[in-house]
């Protein structure tokens, strides 16, 4: 059975003053197996952020089903949703979303505190993760004292510490310089190699080239997908570029 299964997902937004309906997702289908590293690519407005928000249960689909670990996410009542999300999903955002009022360590602990995990347990889990992400010497600092790359690694630590079954990353390299971005992508690869399932939404070819599989979204549908197979990152990069070129120039419905 797949870890994540998305079936006939549809999302229609109604504008505030009634009338106008905008279809963000028309019919999205895909699955993610446990241990996979999947990138979802698409241009701005293709619906990828909507998709991620629905997967993160921050938004509700108009129709369609999502199964995570065999459980239908649309059937979970609201009040259990937060707990479910904390337990099963880890998030990494483009602009880090660290709280300024907490030290980095407390930022990492935040989801555990919310899940009422014992303090000793938190401290037991932290060292290994901090070491892996090379943030063990800055844990006492505050977000405004460290660089963007470090902030994002803290955000990754915050996502990992709950041992989620799936990590959702939304343009994780978007706010980083190329060196920090490269380092972060290697980290994702490493985490994935250790068995963590990762789903990343991005429009950066370079970020996607690290993934094991790339899905292309266009006009609210999965348009194309690409498997790494035995390709190196560079070969993968080339293939993605080619696909993107076809995607934006080919076909009848070019803008």
């Amino acid at each position: 059975m797949s870890l994540l299964e998305v079936r006939h997902l549809k999302k229609i937004y109604t504008t505030r003053f009634g009338g106008n309906q905008i279809q963000a997702l028309s019919d999205v289908n895909f699955t993610v197996e446990a241990g996979e590293y999947v990138a979802i690519m698409g241009e701005s407005g293709s619906g990828k952020t909507t998709l991620l928000n629905i997967l993160a249960s921050l938004d509700k689909p108009t129709s369609g089903e999502i199964y995570l670990g065999g459980r239908s996410m649309t059937s979970i009542p609201d009040r259990e949703m937060c707990a479910f999300r904390r337990k099963n999903l880890g998030f990494v955002f483009q602009d880090f979303n660290l709280l300024d009022t907490f030290s980095l360590q407390d930022n990492i602990f935040l989801p555990l505190v919310l899940s009422r995990v014992k303090h000793q347990e938190m401290e037991r889990r932290l060292p290994a993760i901090a070491k892996k992400l090379a943030i063990d010497n800055i844990l006492e600092k505050y977000p405004y004292e460290v660089s963007g790359g470090q902030k994002q690694r803290v955000a990754v630590a915050r996502a990992l510490i709950t041992r989620p079954s799936l990590i959702l990353a939304d343009e994780p390299t978007g706010a980083l310089d190329s060196k920090a971005a490269g380092r972060l992508l290697e980290l994702f690869e490493q985490i994935n190699a250790e068995g963590q399932t990762v789903l990343m939404v991005t429009h950066s070819t370079r970020a996607a080239s690290h993934a094991g599989r790339v899905l292309f979204i266009k006009d609210g549908e999965v348009y194309h997908q690409l498997y790494r197979g035995g390709m190196s990152n560079d070969e993968m990069y080339q293939r993605i570029s080619d696909s993107l070129t076809v995607l934006s120039t080919g076909g009848m419905d070019v803008e």
């Binding site: 993160a56 921050l58 609201d78 009040r79 949703m81 937060c82 999300r85 904390r86 998030f91 955002f93 979303n97 660290l98 709280l99 009022t101 935040l110 989801p111 919310l114 915050r158």
Partner: peptide, 15 residues
């Protein structure tokens, strides 16, 4: 901003 981030990290609106 704080409101927003806390919700994304897994606090319910009510919390």
């Amino acid at each position: 901003d704080r409101f927003h981030i806390m919700q994304q990290v897994g606090m319910s609106t009510r919390e």
